[in-house]
Amino acid sequence: MSRRLLNLLRLGILALVGETFLAPVLSVGGVAPDFALIGLVILVMAEGTLVGVLGGFVLGLIQDSGVPNLLGLQALLKTLAGFAVGRFRERLVPGMPLVEFGGLALLAFVHDTVRLAASAMALDAPFLRPLVLQVLPSALATAAVGVVAMRVAELAGMLRRSD
């Protein structure tokens, strides 16, 4: 089995197992790390922008299938996230947890804020309260878990230092 396929399989499992089993365990007051986003970031770091964009689109579609009223939103956001991380990856010096933490937190915050704004507009749902009580803590939790997951991925030899 090729290295790329093996990586895709590992990261798919990370995203699915994380979202299904770990997120409910780590959830505090409805706030949990976004394992799909963490999986996507590691995928981009391991395989590059092209695979990240396509992987982000598929991952977003999987999440969208449970929210038909906003079908396409997650696919769009994950696609853009995959592309953005891919471009950032070329400038990233690996092994700097603080930079990784900041980048992941910013990515998760922007991703969830746009998603929340779209839902608020489409569904007349509240915006500010969930932004402070859910999006912000969730972004920090995603960043914290993401840094650990990236170290594990690096130890497992999944992350390539350069193209």
């Binding site: 969208d64 396409g72 696919a75 592309f83």
Partner: peptide, 21 residues
């Protein structure tokens, strides 16, 4: 190729968003 993939995926996602319920 990356830009093409981005365009196709983003366009597909927007098309899905624009569909009636």
């Amino acid at each position: 190729m990356e830009r093409l993939a981005l365009g196709v995926c983003a366009f597909s996602a927007l098309a899905l968003l624009a569909l009636p319920l």
